[in-house]
Write a protein that binds this DNA or RNA. Structure first.
Lengths: 323, 323
DNA sequence: GGTGTATACTAACACGTGTCAATAACACGT
DNA sequence: ACGTGTTATTGACACGTGTTAGTATACACC
């Protein structure tokens, strides 16, 4: 590769000092450069096709202008894969707006849970978005205590670390209200996952509140538990169909699980929504192509990515924790 | 944030020179350090929780240990979104294996087509994977001529730039052979996109070759042209259904387009595969959840990402173009 | 006892930028 | 003539690491 031009080369060609080159190219405010000099510098830079060396700039400025998205793949792999493009593009969109790059760092099963810490400690990035954090992660708490900029995507109860997440309860509330508005009074629910997951509890709570609003008593017999995948949805629906008094509608708190529930219906010769109305949650791409199309609660992956990145960059640039 | 330890601090604590610290921590070969010294250095580093500063290391070594994935979203947005997680995770998987990080850089509609060039010229990364390159991109050719490591994902006829891509022709060949093996003799095709796209032409060629193998004459009347989306598939299938002699099977060279084709069948009261067999291409996640499930040609997104990154890193590290 | 040679370590330079403190030139009022 | 302030520019240091050339010591060999 040919030798690249440095700011020294630009300075020489323009007949000024390296400092002046830096001041001009960075548009440093409150500094006076004569228009002719400015012009000469810009012309020289153009002529030499000069691009400042990122590594040198990082070292000198102490800023990497980079944030990282750390991606824990959970047990709900397929669901999270469907979520990734939106989240990532949202994050990069915001990052670009503020002049940052985005490093993508998926955590793989064979590495230690806190392998991502090196990104922070080695100052590869100015901040991190952690998607799918674990609460037993002491490295995470340490970093936060030291004031390293972090934003979580997902719930982590009991910490003060900034986070973004879907409003699970409200989404569920809306979904069940929709079924109520259609006239259903006996409405079942299949959760997206076991109740150990915060999101799961919140969606259940939304379901409960919607019923409460309408004065319908909560009936535990109508609730079954999904476990991320299709098969768990099929089994849960089977169980609901076995009930003496079947529900006329079911809120399934995950599209992936809902696919299984729909399959169970078909196996019993039942049709949706005529024989049983179904509302999903997550808005996976596939739901649009199902037959019949699945009504579902939209989850704004792009918006979440955007918000997470924007929040993180605000924290990085204000540094409110240490000044 | 507390002051981080530098290699100087480690050197002082261990009672050695900074050079020794560097030699020990980087495991530099062919250099002799006594076991006691080595131990003292490692202990000091541990005690100070020392992580080398990435920016300084980059500057000193001239290596960023980073590759970037440049993502052009094409007109086929949904399809490419479904492809992203696999490609990206494949690339990061290989990158991690070789000790590289991955920068994700989507190109947005509002920026110049060659905005990504700054990544290379500013030495933000050691190399680039370009997904969905444009042939009219002179900046691309310039960089390649200068020996900057590049790998393309997708076709770019008439250049010597290394690239990875799906074997479109072979995939199509396999799909049509499958239909032939089922006994079909009158097989239609709906392309994934207009023939201006290389991938489109290659899939058509695979279809043609499969027929040829079996001695079935190619009949242009049985070929219709999709355009990435569902609606184009619906229309194309409508046209095929209007034929006097309908095909008994159709190879649709894109799952997204196939979804539309299936819809058209339903609208005519026809069932797949009983009334008309369909084989798709791309293996989007949704195809598994369609009813009936769509048989499709699997596209190994993860493998492509892996290959692209591995090839790129080989080029970076051998630098065969300039030595 | 001199001559090589392997071992263990270090001083000093390089990487290319950002930025502060200093300087020089000049205008202006008294 | 002298101080004061403004404008335009620069010299010199800092950022934290990698790496080469070199020094000092110990050891082996004839």
């Amino acid at each position: 590769m040919p030798d690249r031009a440095t700011s020294r080369d630009v300075a020489r060609l323009a007949g000024v000092s390296r400092t002046t080159v830096s001041l001009v190219l960075n548009n440093v405010p409150d500094v006076h450069i004569s228009p002719e000099t400015r012009q000469r510098v810009l012309e020289a830079a153009r002529q030499l096709n000069y691009y400042p060396n990122a590594s040198a700039r990082r070292l000198a400025s102490g800023k990497t202008s980079t944030i990282a998205l750390v991606w824990h793949r959970g047990p709900d792999r397929t669901y999270r894969d469907a979520f990734l493009p939106g989240l990532l593009q949202g994050a990069t969109h915001a990052a670009r707006y503020y002049g940052y790059y985005v490093l993508f760092r998926p955590m793989e099963p064979d590495e230690p849970d806190d392998a991502w810490v090196e990104l922070a400690r080695g100052r590869h990035t100015d901040g991190l978005i952690l998607s799918g954090p674990r609460s037993d992660d002491t490295a995470l708490l340490d970093l936060h205590r030291e004031g390293f900029p972090l934003v979580l995507h997902g719930q982590l109860p009991g910490t003060s670390i900034p986070s973004v997440d879907v409003d699970n309860e409200h989404g569920a509330l809306t979904a069940v209200r929709h079924l109520l508005a259609l006239g259903h009074r006996r409405i079942g629910m299949i959760t997206n996952a076991p109740l150990a997951y915060t999101a799961s509890r919140q969606r259940l709570e939304g379901y409960r509140r919607a019923l409460e609003e309408t004065g319908i008593p909560f009936d535990e017999a109508l609730v079954r538990y999904g476990n991320f995948d299709e098969e768990s949805g099929r089994q849960a629906m089977e169980a609901l169909l076995m009930l003496e008094k079947r529900p006329t509608a079911v809120f399934v708190a995950s599209d992936m699980v809902a696919v299984g529930a729909l399959r169970a219906l078909r196996e019993h010769g039942l049709r949706a929504p005529e024989d049983m109305a179904i509302v999903g949650f997550d808005d996976i791409a596939a739901s649009r192509y199902l037959t019949p199309a699945l009504t579902t609660v939209h989850v704004p992956a792009f918006g979440l990515g955007w918000s997470a990145a924007e929040l993180l960059i605000r924290i990085i640039e204000n540094d409110p924790l240490n000044e």
